[in-house]
Nucleic acid binder design. Structure first.
Lengths: 209, 209
DNA sequence: ATTAACTCGAACATCAGTGTTCAACAAGAG
DNA sequence: CTCTTGTTGAACACTGATGTTCGAGTTAAT
């Protein structure tokens, strides 16, 4: 059991929690996810209120802010992994990149700024680890595309990954600000990234999807 | 006189400040710029310390955190304008875009996250105004390029501007994190943006500079 | 050299967010 | 129904950051 440190499921020793409690824990987790995804500085008060629960109740289930953030982050990472592990990164690199972007979009759109909250609350260990995993996935694909000549070789892979993350985050922010429709997100990111990755002197492909 | 609200130069009525004072004010302004550009949450304490000055002295010159941020932001905007107003946005749109990026780079690299600090301290009025000015410059160029067929027309200009800002900011962050050399910044941004703006089916141009 | 402007550290008041404690009360499990 | 588990608001202690005040010591101007 590597549940970070905080308790939430069952105490160190004791019988299963009451139905009431399980319901509230779920509500808190959901509320925290939404609040922190929107604003990484969200108050414990705001989270409790959004969950329709008293602040004391929240502290009854999560020792501290850090514990809560850790729980939320853990759940988010689990879902992110489960979504991303099924993506086929093989075949035409250009098509694979679009698939990766499509899958990443859903996750990023839901969990938005949660990473920032995690970076502040957690001593940057599991965070770095998780972040590295995310990057590694994209890195492998981009590197393969470079070797096959599908992607430009004159820019370091790390920079391409950075741009991908940056553009994705920008799209999420734009949606949050009402400047972009959520459904247009993937197309915008794909269009941009297909341009970025096209080799100099190459022809920019049409986004498909 | 639209000096926002805070005093710093001369009191409401009185003779010119002492040499000593002017020196310190300059040091504080410089330190604040550097600190806030690195971390928008920088403490007044950190700023004072970086300026080699006591906290009380700082408050003697700037009424509040907001006043200080406003002063720093004002100065930054002034320099940004003075740098950007000379840029020739005419001629070949592709070349003009690279010139714009080059000029923007210097400014962004120096003032980094200062915008964030301003957004939090100032009630989002002059900030929005200034931000809009910055965007307008890029918008005009990109729109012209779209009309002339140099830039892709199938993406809204606002999205292209967003990507430009996003990528620029990402480059600055990368430099701060030691993942990128400062001198490589403009080339990386240009390469990326030239790809982004190239019309579908068009050939990605080689960055020059 | 005298004076007014300035600096500085220490101490204080304030404020917001975090956690904790308590005692009354509500609700699930048997 | 009863007993245990949970919930709740109010009140409290604690922390870190912001501003303020004071008095003693410096420093620039004239």
């Amino acid at each position: 059991m590597t549940t970070t440190t905080g308790q939430a499921t069952g105490a160190t020793e004791g019988r299963p929690p009451r139905a009431d409690a399980r319901r509230n824990i779920a509500a808190i987790l959901d509320a925290a996810t939404e609040c922190l995804a929107r604003d990484p500085d969200a108050t414990i008060n705001q989270v409790a209120q959004a969950a329709g629960v008293g602040r004391v109740t929240l502290y009854g289930h999560f020792d501290s802010r850090a514990t809560l953030v850790a729980a939320v982050a853990e759940r988010a990472m689990a879902e992110a992994d489960s979504v991303l592990k099924d993506i086929d990164l093989g075949g035409d690199p250009v098509a694979a990149l679009q698939r990766l972007i499509g899958a990443t979009w859903a996750v990023t759109h839901r969990y938005g700024a949660l990473v920032v909250a995690a970076e502040r609350a957690l001593p940057s260990e599991q965070v770095d680890q998780a972040h590295a995993d995310l990057r590694a996935r994209a890195e492998r694909l981009l590197k393969r595309g470079q070797r096959s000549g599908a992607f430009r070789k004159d820019l370091p892979v790390s920079w391409l990954v950075t741009v991908l993350h940056s553009v994705t985050h920008a799209a999420v922010t734009a949606v949050h600000a009402g400047e972009l429709e959520a459904e247009d997100g993937p197309r915008m990111i794909c269009a941009a990234m297909l341009g970025v990755t096209t080799p100099t002197g190459g022809v920019v492909p049409e986004p498909s999807g």
